[in-house]
Design a protein around this nucleic acid. Sequence first.
DNA 1: TTGGAGTGTCAACAAAGCTGACGTATTGTG
DNA 2: CACAATACGTCAGCTTTGTTGACACTCCAA
Lengths: 165, 165
Amino acid sequence: MSDPIRSENLLYLTDEQLRQGIEAMYFAYRGFTADPDRILESLAYGRAHHRAIHFINRAPGTTVTNLLDILGVTKQSLNRVLRTLIEDGLVESRVGTSDRRERNLYLTDDGTALEHRLSDSQRGRLRAAFREAGPEDVAGFRRVLEAMMEGEMKRQYKSLRESGK
Amino acid sequence: MSDPIRSENLLYLTDEQLRQGIEAMYFAYRGFTADPDRILESLAYGRAHHRAIHFINRAPGTTVTNLLDILGVTKQSLNRVLRTLIEDGLVESRVGTSDRRERNLYLTDDGTALEHRLSDSQRGRLRAAFREAGPEDVAGFRRVLEAMMEGEMKRQYKSLRESGK
DNA sequence: TTGGAGTGTCAACAAAGCTGACGTATTGTG
DNA sequence: CACAATACGTCAGCTTTGTTGACACTCCAA
Protein backbone atom coordinates (compact mmCIF):
# COMPACT_ATOMS: atom_id res chain seq x y z
CA MET A 1 0.00 0.00 0.00
CA SER A 2 2.88 2.31 0.70
CA ASP A 3 4.26 1.41 -2.69
CA PRO A 4 1.45 1.49 -5.23
CA ILE A 5 3.73 0.76 -8.17
CA ARG A 6 5.09 -2.37 -6.62
CA SER A 7 1.72 -3.67 -5.45
CA GLU A 8 0.14 -2.95 -8.80
CA ASN A 9 2.87 -4.82 -10.59
CA LEU A 10 2.47 -7.86 -8.41
CA LEU A 11 -1.30 -8.07 -8.41
CA TYR A 12 -1.24 -10.63 -11.20
CA LEU A 13 0.95 -12.91 -9.11
CA THR A 14 -1.46 -13.61 -6.26
CA ASP A 15 -2.23 -17.24 -5.48
CA GLU A 16 -5.77 -16.72 -6.72
CA GLN A 17 -4.55 -15.37 -10.05
CA LEU A 18 -2.13 -18.25 -10.37
CA ARG A 19 -4.82 -20.78 -9.60
CA GLN A 20 -7.02 -19.27 -12.27
CA GLY A 21 -4.09 -19.58 -14.65
CA ILE A 22 -3.80 -23.26 -13.78
CA GLU A 23 -7.48 -23.87 -14.44
CA ALA A 24 -7.33 -21.87 -17.65
CA MET A 25 -4.53 -24.12 -18.91
CA TYR A 26 -6.50 -27.21 -17.97
CA PHE A 27 -9.73 -26.25 -19.68
CA ALA A 28 -8.04 -24.65 -22.69
CA TYR A 29 -5.93 -27.71 -23.35
CA ARG A 30 -9.06 -29.81 -23.46
CA GLY A 31 -10.54 -27.49 -26.05
CA PHE A 32 -7.25 -27.50 -27.91
CA THR A 33 -7.30 -31.28 -28.39
CA ALA A 34 -11.06 -31.76 -28.77
CA ASP A 35 -11.37 -31.26 -32.55
CA PRO A 36 -8.50 -33.50 -33.69
CA ASP A 37 -9.58 -36.10 -31.13
CA ARG A 38 -12.95 -36.36 -32.81
CA ILE A 39 -11.35 -36.98 -36.21
CA LEU A 40 -8.84 -39.47 -34.80
CA GLU A 41 -11.50 -41.40 -32.97
CA SER A 42 -13.30 -42.16 -36.20
CA LEU A 43 -10.05 -43.61 -37.57
CA ALA A 44 -9.11 -45.70 -34.52
CA TYR A 45 -6.09 -43.50 -33.90
CA GLY A 46 -5.18 -41.54 -30.79
CA ARG A 47 -3.31 -38.42 -29.78
CA ALA A 48 0.00 -40.24 -30.02
CA HIS A 49 -0.58 -40.82 -33.74
CA HIS A 50 -1.43 -37.16 -34.17
CA ARG A 51 1.79 -36.04 -32.51
CA ALA A 52 3.89 -38.38 -34.63
CA ILE A 53 2.21 -37.21 -37.81
CA HIS A 54 2.58 -33.57 -36.83
CA PHE A 55 6.32 -33.72 -36.22
CA ILE A 56 7.11 -35.97 -39.18
CA ASN A 57 5.32 -33.46 -41.37
CA ARG A 58 7.22 -30.70 -39.65
CA ALA A 59 10.63 -32.26 -40.24
CA PRO A 60 10.44 -34.76 -43.10
CA GLY A 61 13.21 -37.35 -43.07
CA THR A 62 13.61 -37.13 -39.30
CA THR A 63 15.00 -40.20 -37.55
CA VAL A 64 13.27 -42.25 -34.90
CA THR A 65 15.71 -41.06 -32.24
CA ASN A 66 15.08 -37.42 -33.10
CA LEU A 67 11.35 -38.00 -32.85
CA LEU A 68 11.86 -39.66 -29.46
CA ASP A 69 13.65 -36.55 -28.19
CA ILE A 70 10.84 -34.28 -29.34
CA LEU A 71 7.99 -36.43 -28.07
CA GLY A 72 9.65 -37.49 -24.81
CA VAL A 73 8.39 -41.08 -24.80
CA THR A 74 10.16 -44.41 -24.92
CA LYS A 75 11.07 -45.81 -28.28
CA GLN A 76 8.93 -48.87 -27.66
CA SER A 77 5.89 -46.68 -27.18
CA LEU A 78 6.62 -44.63 -30.28
CA ASN A 79 7.38 -47.75 -32.26
CA ARG A 80 3.93 -49.19 -31.80
CA VAL A 81 2.32 -46.01 -33.08
CA LEU A 82 4.76 -45.78 -35.95
CA ARG A 83 4.18 -49.38 -36.93
CA THR A 84 0.43 -48.92 -37.35
CA LEU A 85 0.98 -45.73 -39.34
CA ILE A 86 3.41 -47.53 -41.63
CA GLU A 87 1.11 -50.54 -42.01
CA ASP A 88 -1.75 -48.22 -42.88
CA GLY A 89 0.35 -46.51 -45.50
CA LEU A 90 0.46 -43.07 -43.90
CA VAL A 91 4.16 -43.04 -43.05
CA GLU A 92 7.13 -44.34 -44.99
CA SER A 93 10.28 -45.55 -43.22
CA ARG A 94 13.42 -45.53 -45.37
CA VAL A 95 16.74 -46.98 -44.30
CA GLY A 96 19.23 -44.16 -43.77
CA THR A 97 21.69 -43.51 -46.59
CA SER A 98 24.75 -42.44 -44.64
CA ASP A 99 24.05 -44.53 -41.53
CA ARG A 100 22.01 -47.59 -42.28
CA ARG A 101 21.08 -48.06 -38.63
CA GLU A 102 18.83 -45.04 -38.87
CA ARG A 103 15.37 -44.86 -40.37
CA ASN A 104 14.23 -41.68 -42.10
CA LEU A 105 10.52 -41.02 -41.72
CA TYR A 106 8.28 -39.39 -44.31
CA LEU A 107 4.54 -38.88 -44.72
CA THR A 108 2.98 -40.53 -47.76
CA ASP A 109 0.32 -38.69 -49.74
CA ASP A 110 -2.34 -40.27 -47.54
CA GLY A 111 -0.40 -39.25 -44.44
CA THR A 112 -0.12 -35.69 -45.69
CA ALA A 113 -3.84 -35.65 -46.37
CA LEU A 114 -4.63 -36.73 -42.80
CA GLU A 115 -2.15 -34.20 -41.41
CA HIS A 116 -4.03 -31.48 -43.25
CA ARG A 117 -7.38 -32.62 -41.91
CA LEU A 118 -6.05 -32.65 -38.37
CA SER A 119 -4.17 -29.39 -38.42
CA ASP A 120 -6.96 -27.62 -40.27
CA SER A 121 -9.36 -28.46 -37.48
CA GLN A 122 -6.89 -27.41 -34.80
CA ARG A 123 -5.87 -24.26 -36.61
CA GLY A 124 -9.53 -23.38 -37.07
CA ARG A 125 -10.12 -23.23 -33.36
CA LEU A 126 -6.87 -21.40 -32.69
CA ARG A 127 -7.56 -18.92 -35.46
CA ALA A 128 -10.95 -18.13 -33.97
CA ALA A 129 -9.42 -17.69 -30.53
CA PHE A 130 -6.60 -15.50 -31.88
CA ARG A 131 -9.02 -13.37 -33.84
CA GLU A 132 -11.29 -12.94 -30.85
CA ALA A 133 -8.38 -11.88 -28.64
CA GLY A 134 -6.30 -9.73 -30.98
CA PRO A 135 -2.59 -9.40 -31.78
CA GLU A 136 -1.45 -7.99 -28.44
CA ASP A 137 -3.06 -10.81 -26.51
CA VAL A 138 -1.63 -13.39 -28.88
CA ALA A 139 1.86 -12.04 -28.35
CA GLY A 140 1.37 -12.27 -24.59
CA PHE A 141 -0.05 -15.77 -24.90
CA ARG A 142 3.04 -16.88 -26.79
CA ARG A 143 5.48 -15.27 -24.39
CA VAL A 144 3.86 -16.78 -21.30
CA LEU A 145 3.74 -20.25 -22.86
CA GLU A 146 7.38 -20.04 -23.84
CA ALA A 147 8.35 -19.01 -20.32
CA MET A 148 6.41 -22.01 -19.00
CA MET A 149 8.39 -24.63 -20.94
CA GLU A 150 11.17 -26.66 -19.39
CA GLY A 151 14.67 -25.97 -20.66
CA GLU A 152 15.01 -28.82 -23.10
CA MET A 153 11.48 -28.36 -24.45
CA LYS A 154 12.09 -24.67 -24.96
CA ARG A 155 15.18 -25.49 -26.97
CA GLN A 156 13.16 -27.87 -29.17
CA TYR A 157 10.43 -25.30 -29.62
CA LYS A 158 12.78 -22.52 -30.65
CA SER A 159 14.67 -24.79 -33.00
CA LEU A 160 11.45 -25.84 -34.71
CA ARG A 161 10.31 -22.24 -34.88
CA GLU A 162 13.44 -21.16 -36.68
CA SER A 163 13.34 -24.01 -39.17
CA GLY A 164 9.79 -22.94 -39.96
CA LYS A 165 10.99 -20.21 -42.30
CA MET B 1 -0.15 -4.30 -49.48
CA SER B 2 -2.75 -1.84 -50.61
CA ASP B 3 -4.24 -1.92 -47.15
CA PRO B 4 -1.48 -1.84 -44.55
CA ILE B 5 -3.87 -1.70 -41.61
CA ARG B 6 -5.70 -4.82 -42.61
CA SER B 7 -2.60 -6.82 -43.45
CA GLU B 8 -0.90 -5.75 -40.25
CA ASN B 9 -3.87 -6.86 -38.21
CA LEU B 10 -3.96 -10.27 -39.81
CA LEU B 11 -0.26 -11.05 -39.73
CA TYR B 12 -0.67 -13.01 -36.52
CA LEU B 13 -3.20 -15.27 -38.19
CA THR B 14 -0.97 -16.84 -40.82
CA ASP B 15 -0.77 -20.63 -40.93
CA GLU B 16 2.83 -20.45 -39.73
CA GLN B 17 1.87 -18.34 -36.73
CA LEU B 18 -0.96 -20.72 -35.92
CA ARG B 19 1.31 -23.72 -36.17
CA GLN B 20 3.74 -22.09 -33.78
CA GLY B 21 0.82 -21.51 -31.44
CA ILE B 22 -0.05 -25.20 -31.62
CA GLU B 23 3.51 -26.24 -30.81
CA ALA B 24 3.70 -23.68 -28.02
CA MET B 25 0.59 -25.20 -26.43
CA TYR B 26 2.05 -28.68 -26.74
CA PHE B 27 5.43 -27.93 -25.19
CA ALA B 28 4.05 -25.57 -22.55
CA TYR B 29 1.49 -28.10 -21.36
CA ARG B 30 4.26 -30.60 -20.83
CA GLY B 31 6.13 -28.09 -18.68
CA PHE B 32 2.91 -27.27 -16.91
CA THR B 33 2.38 -30.87 -15.76
CA ALA B 34 6.02 -31.86 -15.26
CA ASP B 35 6.49 -30.77 -11.62
CA PRO B 36 3.32 -32.30 -10.15
CA ASP B 37 3.92 -35.44 -12.20
CA ARG B 38 7.25 -35.94 -10.46
CA ILE B 39 5.63 -35.68 -7.04
CA LEU B 40 2.74 -37.96 -7.99
CA GLU B 41 5.01 -40.61 -9.43
CA SER B 42 6.76 -41.05 -6.10
CA LEU B 43 3.35 -41.70 -4.51
CA ALA B 44 2.04 -44.14 -7.13
CA TYR B 45 -0.62 -41.64 -8.16
CA GLY B 46 -1.27 -40.17 -11.59
CA ARG B 47 -2.66 -37.05 -13.16
CA ALA B 48 -6.18 -38.30 -12.62
CA HIS B 49 -5.63 -38.21 -8.85
CA HIS B 50 -4.24 -34.69 -9.10
CA ARG B 51 -7.27 -33.43 -10.99
CA ALA B 52 -9.65 -34.95 -8.47
CA ILE B 53 -7.73 -33.47 -5.53
CA HIS B 54 -7.55 -30.06 -7.20
CA PHE B 55 -11.26 -29.72 -7.79
CA ILE B 56 -12.32 -31.20 -4.45
CA ASN B 57 -10.10 -28.64 -2.76
CA ARG B 58 -11.56 -25.97 -5.01
CA ALA B 59 -15.16 -26.82 -4.18
CA PRO B 60 -15.25 -28.70 -0.86
CA GLY B 61 -18.40 -30.75 -0.38
CA THR B 62 -18.87 -31.20 -4.12
CA THR B 63 -20.83 -34.25 -5.22
CA VAL B 64 -19.57 -37.09 -7.37
CA THR B 65 -21.83 -36.06 -10.25
CA ASN B 66 -20.57 -32.52 -10.16
CA LEU B 67 -16.99 -33.75 -10.27
CA LEU B 68 -17.86 -35.95 -13.23
CA ASP B 69 -19.16 -32.91 -15.10
CA ILE B 70 -16.04 -30.90 -14.41
CA LEU B 71 -13.56 -33.64 -15.23
CA GLY B 72 -15.43 -35.03 -18.20
CA VAL B 73 -14.73 -38.69 -17.48
CA THR B 74 -16.97 -41.66 -16.78
CA LYS B 75 -17.98 -42.51 -13.25
CA GLN B 76 -16.21 -45.87 -13.47
CA SER B 77 -12.99 -44.11 -14.26
CA LEU B 78 -13.42 -41.48 -11.55
CA ASN B 79 -14.54 -44.07 -9.05
CA ARG B 80 -11.33 -46.04 -9.34
CA VAL B 81 -9.31 -42.93 -8.55
CA LEU B 82 -11.64 -41.78 -5.78
CA ARG B 83 -11.60 -45.19 -4.13
CA THR B 84 -7.83 -45.21 -3.77
CA LEU B 85 -7.83 -41.66 -2.42
CA ILE B 86 -10.47 -42.56 0.17
CA GLU B 87 -8.68 -45.78 1.13
CA ASP B 88 -5.46 -43.83 1.55
CA GLY B 89 -7.19 -41.33 3.80
CA LEU B 90 -6.76 -38.29 1.56
CA VAL B 91 -10.43 -37.81 0.71
CA GLU B 92 -13.50 -38.18 2.88
CA SER B 93 -16.89 -39.11 1.45
CA ARG B 94 -19.84 -38.05 3.60
CA VAL B 95 -23.46 -38.97 2.97
CA GLY B 96 -25.36 -35.87 1.86
CA THR B 97 -27.48 -34.13 4.50
CA SER B 98 -30.37 -32.86 2.38
CA ASP B 99 -30.26 -35.69 -0.17
CA ARG B 100 -28.79 -38.83 1.30
CA ARG B 101 -28.21 -40.39 -2.10
CA GLU B 102 -25.45 -37.88 -2.70
CA ARG B 103 -21.90 -38.10 -1.39
CA ASN B 104 -20.15 -34.90 -0.41
CA LEU B 105 -16.40 -35.00 -0.95
CA TYR B 106 -13.83 -33.31 1.25
CA LEU B 107 -10.06 -33.40 1.56
CA THR B 108 -8.73 -34.68 4.85
CA ASP B 109 -5.75 -32.96 6.47
CA ASP B 110 -3.44 -35.34 4.62
CA GLY B 111 -5.30 -34.62 1.40
CA THR B 112 -4.97 -30.90 1.94
CA ALA B 113 -1.27 -31.31 2.60
CA LEU B 114 -0.77 -33.14 -0.68
CA GLU B 115 -2.86 -30.57 -2.52
CA HIS B 116 -0.54 -27.89 -1.21
CA ARG B 117 2.57 -29.75 -2.28
CA LEU B 118 1.16 -30.23 -5.76
CA SER B 119 -0.21 -26.75 -6.31
CA ASP B 120 2.87 -25.12 -4.80
CA SER B 121 5.04 -26.80 -7.38
CA GLN B 122 2.70 -25.89 -10.21
CA ARG B 123 2.19 -22.34 -8.99
CA GLY B 124 5.94 -21.95 -8.65
CA ARG B 125 6.49 -22.56 -12.33
CA LEU B 126 3.53 -20.43 -13.35
CA ARG B 127 4.65 -17.61 -11.07
CA ALA B 128 8.08 -17.62 -12.65
CA ALA B 129 6.58 -17.60 -16.12
CA PHE B 130 4.14 -14.79 -15.25
CA ARG B 131 6.90 -12.74 -13.67
CA GLU B 132 9.15 -13.21 -16.66
CA ALA B 133 6.40 -12.16 -19.06
CA GLY B 134 4.72 -9.31 -17.19
CA PRO B 135 1.11 -8.28 -16.49
CA GLU B 136 0.16 -7.34 -20.06
CA ASP B 137 1.29 -10.67 -21.42
CA VAL B 138 -0.48 -12.53 -18.64
CA ALA B 139 -3.74 -10.79 -19.46
CA GLY B 140 -3.34 -11.76 -23.10
CA PHE B 141 -2.48 -15.32 -22.16
CA ARG B 142 -5.66 -15.60 -20.11
CA ARG B 143 -7.87 -14.10 -22.81
CA VAL B 144 -6.54 -16.37 -25.54
CA LEU B 145 -6.93 -19.47 -23.38
CA GLU B 146 -10.47 -18.54 -22.50
CA ALA B 147 -11.32 -18.02 -26.16
CA MET B 148 -9.90 -21.47 -26.88
CA MET B 149 -12.22 -23.36 -24.53
CA GLU B 150 -15.32 -25.19 -25.71
CA GLY B 151 -18.63 -23.74 -24.61
CA GLU B 152 -19.37 -26.02 -21.69
CA MET B 153 -15.79 -25.88 -20.42
CA LYS B 154 -15.81 -22.09 -20.59
CA ARG B 155 -18.96 -22.06 -18.51
CA GLN B 156 -17.31 -24.29 -15.88
CA TYR B 157 -14.20 -22.12 -15.87
CA LYS B 158 -16.09 -18.89 -15.38
CA SER B 159 -18.25 -20.36 -12.68
CA LEU B 160 -15.20 -21.57 -10.77
CA ARG B 161 -13.54 -18.21 -11.25
CA GLU B 162 -16.44 -16.36 -9.71
CA SER B 163 -16.71 -18.68 -6.74
CA GLY B 164 -13.02 -18.00 -6.12
CA LYS B 165 -13.80 -14.77 -4.33
C1' DT C 1 38.38 -58.26 -36.55
C1' DT C 2 36.06 -57.81 -32.78
C1' DG C 3 33.75 -55.53 -29.03
C1' DG C 4 31.12 -51.65 -27.55
C1' DA C 5 27.85 -48.10 -28.64
C1' DG C 6 23.83 -46.67 -31.27
C1' DT C 7 19.36 -47.79 -33.38
C1' DG C 8 15.29 -50.16 -33.87
C1' DT C 9 11.91 -54.30 -32.80
C1' DC C 10 9.28 -57.78 -30.06
C1' DA C 11 6.99 -59.27 -25.64
C1' DA C 12 4.77 -58.40 -21.55
C1' DC C 13 2.85 -55.36 -18.20
C1' DA C 14 0.52 -51.00 -15.93
C1' DA C 15 -2.27 -46.68 -15.72
C1' DA C 16 -6.30 -44.69 -16.89
C1' DG C 17 -9.55 -43.89 -20.13
C1' DC C 18 -13.99 -46.30 -22.22
C1' DT C 19 -18.83 -49.18 -22.61
C1' DG C 20 -22.36 -52.12 -20.80
C1' DA C 21 -24.84 -54.20 -17.14
C1' DC C 22 -26.42 -54.39 -12.67
C1' DG C 23 -27.37 -53.57 -7.46
C1' DT C 24 -28.69 -50.51 -3.70
C1' DA C 25 -30.34 -46.61 -1.40
C1' DT C 26 -33.08 -42.70 -1.67
C1' DT C 27 -36.22 -39.39 -3.57
C1' DG C 28 -40.20 -37.74 -5.66
C1' DT C 29 -44.50 -38.40 -8.14
C1' DG C 30 -48.82 -40.31 -10.03
C1' DC D 1 -48.60 -46.31 -1.33
C1' DA D 2 -46.37 -48.11 -5.36
C1' DC D 3 -43.15 -47.30 -8.56
C1' DA D 4 -40.20 -44.71 -11.71
C1' DA D 5 -36.18 -41.86 -11.56
C1' DT D 6 -31.83 -40.39 -9.56
C1' DA D 7 -27.20 -40.88 -7.35
C1' DC D 8 -23.71 -43.74 -6.44
C1' DG D 9 -20.87 -47.91 -6.51
C1' DT D 10 -19.10 -52.07 -8.71
C1' DC D 11 -17.99 -56.04 -11.92
C1' DA D 12 -16.23 -57.46 -16.33
C1' DG D 13 -13.85 -56.49 -20.32
C1' DC D 14 -11.70 -53.55 -23.90
C1' DT D 15 -8.42 -49.69 -25.78
C1' DT D 16 -4.70 -46.43 -25.90
C1' DT D 17 -0.37 -45.27 -24.57
C1' DG D 18 2.89 -45.23 -21.38
C1' DT D 19 6.61 -48.48 -19.05
C1' DT D 20 10.88 -52.24 -18.64
C1' DG D 21 13.43 -56.22 -20.31
C1' DA D 22 15.53 -58.74 -23.89
C1' DC D 23 17.46 -58.97 -28.32
C1' DA D 24 19.07 -58.21 -33.30
C1' DC D 25 21.32 -55.37 -36.71
C1' DT D 26 24.74 -51.82 -37.91
C1' DC D 27 28.70 -48.90 -37.38
C1' DC D 28 33.13 -47.50 -35.82
C1' DA D 29 37.34 -47.55 -33.49
C1' DA D 30 40.91 -50.05 -30.90
